[in-house]
Design a protein around this nucleic acid. Structure first.
Length: 664
RNA sequence: GCGCCUGUAGCUCAGCAGGAUAGAGCAGCGCUUUCCUAAAGCGCAGGUCGCAGGUUCGAAUCCUGCCAGGCGUACCA
C-alpha cells in the first residue's frame, strides 16, 4: 500500500469528471511540507481554474462535493470547505482509524505493506567494474555501494534484476602482470601467496612503465611551465587603461598564476617520482635493464589478445587469484553479483560487432580509425583503433547486444562516475542507431570522492587510497568509538554493549558508516570524505541509524517481550497521541520513499526517509512510555509501533546493504 | 572554443514530483536526567537559495544570459 497512490487514484476519478484531461493533475496531489496543512495536499484547483477559467476556490468546492461521494472518506477525515486554504489548496488529513488499520496490516506483512511492482520489469545493474589486475581503490567505492543499493531496492520492489560486474580482465594491466611474471617473479612468494606476489609484480611493472612515461613527459611539463611563465610576463607588461579591460586582464593574470602553480606542482611530483626510482639502486638497475618495458608490456597484451598459448595459459592461471582478491573485499562489503562478465568474455564478439556496424553503414574509416559518427556529436566514437585494436566503446556495444539477446532487459543502469558522461552519451546514441531502441539506457553517474582539501581523495604522499586500507581505517576508528562506549559509566542495561565482541561490532559499524556516508550523499555531487563525520553519533549517519535500531530492540529485551507471541494475538494499534500518529504515518510512507528512490536512482532519498523515521521514533520514545504505558492495551499498541519501526529500519538499511546490530 | 555538472546558514550537505513561513548535522548560545540506551532530546541565533532577466496564480526548483568552480572534449578505461 502506498498512501500517495491511494489518494491519487481517488482524485483521478473526480478530476476526470470535472475537466477533460483533468486526471493529469493527480501529480499535484502531494505530501504536505508542513503538518499544519494536513498530511497530504491537493494543489489541483489552481491549474484547473486556469484551464476552466473559473475561480480556483470554486473548483476546490466542486471537487470536495464530488470527493465526499467516493471512498476517499474511508481514508481521510471528512472533507469540508474548511479543508480549502489559500488560493485553493485542499488539505487532506488521514483518519487515525485508517492509519491504525494500515499499520496492523503492515505488521502482519513480511513486506511491511509495500506492494510488489506491477508490472515487474527487467533491470541490469552494471556496477563496481574494477580492474582486477590491480587492487581496488577509493574510486571504486561509490559505484560498488550505490550500484548494490539500487540492485537491492529494485529487487525488493519485485523487479527481475541482474547485477553484472563488468570487470576489466583483459587490458594492459594483464600485460603488466604477464611481463612482471616472466621477468621479476619470486617463485617462492608466488607459491606461498600468489595474490600478494601478483599485486607486487603489477605495482613494480607499473612503476617502471610510469618512470619511463614520466621521463618523456618531463620536458613537456617544463615547456608548459615555461610557456605559462612567459604568458604571465607578457600579460603583466601590458595593463590596459580602460577599467573593464583592466579587470579582465587582472583575471587572466590570476588564471595564468594558477596555471603556473599547477604546472610547477606537476613537474615537482614528476621529478620526485623519477628521483625516488633513481635513488633506489635495485629499481634503478631494473629501469636500465628494461628500457623498452612500456612497449614490451603492450606486446604481451597484444599476444594475449591474439591467442598466444603461453600468455593465455598465464592469464587463466592468474584470473582466479585476481578474482579472489576482489572477492575478499566484496565479502567484507556484503556485495554480490549475479554475473561477472568482464571484457574478456566479449573478446570474440568484438570483430563481429564492428563488422556489423560497418555493414550497416554506421561506422566508417577516418584517419585510419573506424568511427561511428552521430548527429549532434562533435567527436566520433571510435570502435577500432588505427592499429586494429578494439576499445571499451566496442566492448560496451557488444555488451549491449549480448544483454539484449540473453535477458531482453527493459533497462540497463550503468553506475559509473560522471567523467564518463560523454562516453555514455555516445554509446547510447550509437546503440540506438544500431537498433536497440526498446531498452532504457541510463548512466547513473556520480561525483568524485574528495579529501578535506577539496581535491580528489589521495594519501599524503599523493597516491590513490586503497579500498582495503579505507575499510581498515573506518573499522579501526569504529573500534575506538565502540570502546569509548564500553568505558561509559552506566552499567550495561538490557541491550547495551556488555558481553559482545567489540571487533565484530566495530567491523559492522565501520563498514556501515563508510557505505551510508556515500549513499546519504546526493550521488550527482562530489563529496568530502570524513571519517569523523561518517562515524558521528548524531545526524544522518549509519552509526545513528544503527543506534536507533538497537534502542528499539532494547525495549523488547528490557521488557522481556516475546515479539512472536505478541503478534500472534492479532494486536490492536492506536495512534491517538500526536507522537504515535507521526511515527505511524512515517512508517507507512516507506513505500513512497522507495518509489522516490527508484524514480531517479537516488539512494539518498531512502537515507533521508530512514533518518526522518529515526527522528520520529525519538520523539515518540521521549513522549510515550512504552513498557510503562498507562494501560495494557496501549502498551501492546506501542510495542507494535516499536516493532514496526525496528523492522522498517532494518529493512531499509538492508536495502542499502547495511547490517544492523541488536546491541551497541 | 564547445559540452556536461556544481554554486543553498560560518562548515559539510539535504530539498530541485514548481506549492503556503527554505531544512539537517556540525560549530555557537541556552535548557532538560527521581524517566524504557544522555551514544539522547528541546529551544535560540544564524539565509539577497551565485547574479540578472523570463515563464507561472505561485520559482531554490523550469527557461535564457552572465559570474565562479569542477570535469570532459578522436584512437586509455
Amino acid at each position: 500500500m502506498n498512501i500517495l497512490d491511494e489518494l491519487r487514484q481517488r482524485f483521478a476519478v473526480v478530476l476526470k469528471e470535472v475537466a477533460p484531461g483533468g486526471e493529469k493533475y493527480v501529480e499535484l496531489v502531494l505530501p504536505s511540507q508542513d503538518a499544519r496543512f494536513g498530511d497530504y495536499q491537493a494543489n489541483v484547483a489552481m491549474p484547473l481554474g486556469k484551464q476552466l477559467g473559473r475561480p480556483p476556490r470554486e473548483i476546490a468546492i466542486e471537487l470536495i462535493a464530488r470527493l465526499v461521494q467516493t471512498d476517499l472518506q474511508t481514508i481521510c477525515e471528512p472533507l469540508t470547505e474548511q479543508a480549502i486554504a489559500g488560493p485553493g489548496f485542499i488539505n487532506l488529513k488521514l483518519r487515525n482509524a485508517w492509519l491504525a488499520e494500515q499499520l496492523q496490516h503492515a505488521l502482519s506483512d513480511p513486506r511491511l505493506g509495500v506492494a510488489p511492482a506491477s508490472p515487474a520489469k527487467t533491470y541490469i545493474v552494471d556496477y563496481s567494474a574494477p580492474n582486477v589486475a590491480k587492487p581496488m581503490h577509493v574510486g571504486h567505492i561509490r559505484s560498488t555501494v550505490i550500484g548494490n543499493a539500487l540492485y537491492r531496492i529494485l529487487k525488493f520492489l519485485g523487479h527481475r534484476v541482474i547485477g553484472d560486474n563488468h570487470i576489466g580482465d583483459w587490458g594492459t594491466q594483464f600485460g603488466m602482470i604477464i611481463y612482471g611474471f616472466k621477468h621479476f617473479r619470486d617463485e617462492a612468494a608466488y607459491v606461498r601467496q600468489p595474490v600478494a606476489e601478483l599485486a607486487r609484480l603489477y605495482r613494480l611493472v607499473s612503476r617502471l612503465v610510469d618512470y619511463r612515461a614520466t621521463q618523456t613527459e618531463s620536458p613537456k611539463l617544463e615547456a608548459r611551465l615555461h610557456a605559462a611563465r612567459q604568458a604571465a610576463e607578457t600579460a603583466r607588461a601590458q595593463t590596459p587603461a580602460e577599467p573593464a579591460a583592466a579587470k579582465k586582464a587582472a583575471k587572466e593574470q590570476q588564471r595564468l598564476e594558477t596555471r603556473i602553480k599547477e604546472a610547477q606542482g606537476e613537474l615537482d611530483s614528476a621529478r620526485a617520482k623519477i628521483a625516488a626510482v633513481d635513488q633506489d639502486p635495485a629499481l634503478a638497475n631494473l629501469v636500465s635493464a628494461h628500457p623498452e618495458i612500456a612497449a614490451e608490456v603492450l606486446a604481451e597484451t597484444a599476444r594475449l589478445h591474439a591467442g598466444d598459448a603461453e600468455n593465455l595459459r598465464l592469464w587463466r592461471e592468474f584470473m582466479p587469484y585476481c578474482l579472489e582478491d576482489i572477492e575478499r573485499i566484496y565479502r567484507r562489503l556484503g556485495v554480490e553479483f549475479d554475473e561477472t562478465l568482464g571484457e574478456s568474455f566479449y573478446h570474440d564478439r568484438l570483430a563481429p560487432t564492428v563488422n556489423d556496424l560497418q555493414a550497416r553503414g554506421l561506422a566508417r574509416e577516418s584517419e585510419g580509425a573506424l568511427c561511428v559518427f552521430l548527429p549532434g556529436q562533435s567527436t566520433p566514437m571510435i570502435v577500432r583503433k588505427q592499429d586494429g585494436a578494439f576499445l571499451y566503446a566496442t566492448t560496451d556495444l557488444a555488451t549491449i547486444a549480448y544483454r539484449k539477446e540473453r535477458w531482453n532487459p527493459d533497462a540497463i543502469l550503468y553506475v559509473v562516475d560522471h567523467r564518463q558522461g560523454l562516453h555514455f552519451e555516445q554509446l547510447f546514441a550509437a546503440a540506438r542507431a544500431w537498433g536497440h531502441q526498446n531498452v532504457e539506457l541510463v548512466h547513473v553517474s556520480f561525483g568524485t570522492v574528495l579529501g578535506d582539501d577539496g581535491r580528489p581523495f589521495k594519501t599524503r604522499a599523493g597516491d590513490t587510497v586503497g579500498l582495503e586500507g579505507l575499510l581498515d581505517e573506518a573499522v579501526r576508528r569504529a573500534l575506538a568509538v565502540v570502546a569509548a562506549n564500553d568505558r561509559s559509566e552506566a552499567p550495561p542495561t538490557g541491550a547495551e554493549s556488555g558481553g559482545r565482541d567489540s571487533h565484530s561490532t566495530a567491523e559492522t559499524v565501520g563498514i556501515a558508516a563508510l557505505k551510508y556516508a556515500d549513499l546519504a550523499q546526493n550521488r550527482t555531487s562530489d563529496y568530502v570524505f570524513s571519517y569523523d563525520k561518517m562515524l558521528a553519533m548524531n545526524g544522518n549517519t549509519a552509526t545513528y541509524m544503527q543506534y536507533a535500531y538497537a534502542r528499539v530492540r532494547s525495549i523488547f529485551a528490557k521488557g522481556e517481550v516475546d515479539v512472536d507471541a505478541l503478534l500472534a494475538k492479532n494486536p490492536t494499534i492506536t495512534v491517538d497521541e500526536p507522537a504515535e500518529r507521526a511515527l505511524g504515518l512515517e512508517i507507512l510512507r516507506f513505500s513512497e520513499a522507495l518509489q522516490l528512490t527508484v524514480a531517479d536512482y537516488r539512494p539518498n532519498q531512502l537515507t533521508t526517509y530512514l533518518f526522518e523515521l529515526a527522528n520520529r521514533f525519538s520523539t515518540f520514545f521521549e513522549e510515550c512510555p512504552v513498557l510503562k504505558a498507562p494501560t495494557p492495551a496501549l502498551r501492546t499498541s506501542r510495542l507494535c509501533l516499536c516493532e514496526l519501526t525496528a523492522r522498517t529500519l532494518r529493512q531499509g538499511l538492508e536495502l542499502l546493504g547495511i547490517d544492523v546490530l541488536e546491541r551497541m
